[in-house]
Amino acid sequence: MADILVVLEVRDGKVRPASLQALGAARGLADARGGRVLALATEAVEPDLEALGGAGADEVLVAGAEAHSPDGAAATAVRVAGEEGADLVLLAATIRGRDLCGRIAAGLEAGFAPDCTALEADGEGLLFERPVYAGKARMQVRIRTPKAVASLRPNFFQPAGRSHSATRRDVPAEEGKARVVEMKGRQEGRPDVAEARIIVSGGRGLGGPENWPLLEALADALPGAALGASRAVVDAGWRPHSEQVGQTGKTVSPELYIAVGISGAIQHLAGMSTSKVIVAINKDAEAPIFQHATYGVVGDALEILPKLTEALKAAQAG
């Protein structure tokens, strides 16, 4: 059986967690249908062969471009897929991954399935499941071209979690015309909202930016939590757009999403309705968010937040 190529996302010399999840998905398929799992880093990285092998890779190919070039990375992936005879290319559906998905498909004359939430091999080949219409429906699709490219939504797949060390091989990098020349406004400390396991998200119900320390304190009490925001809050200038969750912001699927003072407009739900557990805190018992929440608390967020933070800290200390 042909091999699977997983294109890793590297930032600051590290492989992003969502790429390890894509390796896990590839491993599952390779175990079912045969073939190897090749991981490709299109830019310079000192790969952790234990971690990548454990997540699912058999071999790690390193093409050491100095900076990310979107077209260069795609050209490298297309060439490597051809040389290695891979018939399936998988990526994490991050902002970079979504962009590469269509480009690699163009180079391989392939169809593509972006932002998949499930992936299954059956007698006829591969079946990809993906949300459409902002999550208001899902589609199952088959790619009919000989080669296929798919991006996988973060947090829907797991790294293989095995004990295995991958081997390493260096391959040449292709030059691109577009180049990343600078990274600005790097977020330090907290993970990005699109990758976090837990998100604490605030809306207009928090009253103003002066109340955000209450939300930040809650996030601090939850290790690995990111801060999110509704569009109302971003439009008002209380929070940066990088935190916005929803149709015109980021799509997230954390294990726990805590929506505080967020009404639950359809465009907000579009970005977070696939979260595993949703907690809503809202003073209006009729707010639409409660229809989607696993657990709801009705009341004033400004009173509830400090209590929740305090209780979490006490639980951790105890």
């Binding site: 790619i143 309705s273 709801g296």
Partner: peptide, 18 residues
């Protein structure tokens, strides 16, 4: 290049509670 096999409503969420 890609064939749609089926379209369906999103997976139901287990009912929530206050």
């Amino acid at each position: 290049a890609v064939e749609v096999v089926s379209m369906s409503p999103p997976p139901p969420r287990p009912p929530g509670r206050i």
